[in-house]
Design a protein around this nucleic acid. Structure first.
Length: 324
DNA sequence: AAGCCGAGCAACCGCCCAATT
DNA sequence: AAATTGGGCGGTTGCTCGGCT
């Protein structure tokens, strides 16, 4: 048995709301409250669906709503929370007084997603593209990796060029990446002009190098995210102290910036980080539930943002000016 | 000046879930 | 226990407007 519609589709007006309709709805709600949305349009003299009235009220007419640009702090909050809870817009909006889930969703889709992509960060996983590629590569056999590399280089070419063109990259292996260097072939000392070709070369060499008779040399069977296969690419993004997002620098642990406290992304958050993100999500659910009350409670719950996870470990200078 | 295009945003749709009958 | 109902949520659509050619 199907559900009856919330209103008579034929008799309801749709599309943009007029100021008169807004006035009718606002004054009715001011007098009678928001009980029973089904009856509100009828009683308020509106030819609208009850659901449409609810949306208009909650997303636009509510007196406590904040209209206008999102602040830097609000954007940071959105990105942080999105990394933890994903597309739970209502939950995220609950942390931003005066903002609705629709506001947050729209802002994410139109601005923040592009900003993150422009910084070389996947807006879905909040990980650098390079590490995503490395993660994928570890699960594939060499022939598949070769195909992946071709595809990835096509997809991320612009990001690479952008990053690489910002400053000369010294591909000398850093001390902090010593573990990586043991398996790093000598072709990593690149100049930046023919970078893509060099990366391709590196990929193909890495694919050829493992001794297929030795299971320990099969990167696609390893649990480690950083494999020799993508070492060349990953080394394009050496771990550094932080980077800049718009006018806000972040990524430096202990600098007090909200950006630096909890993001669970990047090479320092490998498989374990994935678990941690899941754990955080679980913890979030447990502590706050899925209802609006829980969401409100979370305003005061900051402990979940104090994990040791490091923010994206991308080079600072390279990311000052997002592509988009 | 007109047409095109993309960004931004308001609104709608369909599904889900909890409360109620 | 099952059916019904209302409200909430996330995904998507489509309108508006400004910039560009």
């Amino acid at each position: 048995m199907g559900r009856i519609p919330c209103c008579e589709k034929d008799n309801v007006k749709r599309g943009q709301w007029t100021p008169e309709e807004d006035n009718k709805l606002s004054s009715y709600i001011a007098q009678h409250g928001t009980r029973n949305w089904r009856l509100i349009p009828k009683n308020a003299g509106l030819q609208r669906c009850g659901k449409s009235c609810r949306l208009r009220w909650t997303n636009y007419l509510r007196p406590d709503l904040k209209h206008g640009q999102f602040s830097d702090a609000e954007e940071q909050t959105i990105v942080k929370l999105h990394a933890v809870v994903g597309n739970r817009w209502a939950l995220i909006a609950g942390q931003l007084p005066g903002r609705t889930d629709n506001d947050v969703k729209n802002h994410w889709n139109t601005k923040l997603k592009k900003k993150l992509s422009g910084m070389g960060i996947d807006p879905v996983t909040h990980k650098p593209f390079s590490h995503l590629m490395a993660e994928i590569a570890t699960t594939l056999a060499p022939p598949q990796v070769a195909h992946l590399a071709e595809a990835a280089l096509g997809c991320f070419k612009d990001e690479f060029f952008h990053l690489l063109s910002k400053k000369p990259i010294d591909f000398q292996v850093q001390q902090s990446n010593l573990a990586l260097t043991n398996t790093m072939p000598s072709y990593i000392n690149y100049k930046q002009d023919d970078t893509i070709d060099k990366i391709k070369l590196g990929l193909s060499k890495a694919i050829q190098e493992p001794d297929l008779n030795d299971p320990s040399d099969k990167p696609w069977e390893s649990t480690a995210i950083t494999s020799t296969t993508f070492a060349g690419i990953c080394n394009v993004f050496p771990a550094t102290s932080g980077f800049q997002f718009g006018t806000t620098s972040f990524g430096n642990e202990g600098d007090g910036s909200p950006w630096s406290q909890s993001m669970c992304t990047g090479s320092t958050c490998t498989a374990a980080a994935g678990d941690q993100q899941g754990h955080l999500h679980e913890k979030f659910e447990q502590e706050n539930g899925d209802d609006s009350e829980g969401a409100k409670e979370m305003r005061n719950t900051t402990s979940m943002f104090n994990s040791d996870c490091v923010l994206w470990d991308l080079p600072s200078d390279d990311l000052i000016n997002p592509i988009v």
